[in-house]
Amino acid sequence: MITAATLSGLTGAILVGLGLYGLIADPRPLRKILAFNILGSGVFLVFGIIARRGAAAGFPADPVPQAMVITGIVVAFAASALAIAILLRLVSETGRASLRPDTPGAAQTPGD
């Protein structure tokens, strides 16, 4: 029987997969940042069920992983803010929201 905690853990695992796909397959930088955040929240959720499974000593969940997830959420936000600042600067320099190093119009290399 799958418990609520395991269900959330499996949800987290699928979220990691979804985020990973978006991170690799979507060329748009803003969408990569979004996908990265989804990947991260999936990891946090996996961490969360480890907290829930560690329910003991009268606590409904192990406080140590929970505290680490809280710091994790804040750090993920800081990373996103930095990434977006870099992206906006890139756009203001090149005029294109693209991670491709070559200039527009140049021949593209497959598998890049």
């Binding site: 499974r53 560690g54 329910a55 003991a56 000593a57 192990d62 406080p63 140590v64």
Partner: peptide, 9 residues
């Protein structure tokens, strides 16, 4: 599951 909850408590 292993837990640090007793230690924290």
């Amino acid at each position: 599951g292993p837990s640090l909850a007793p230690l924290a408590a």
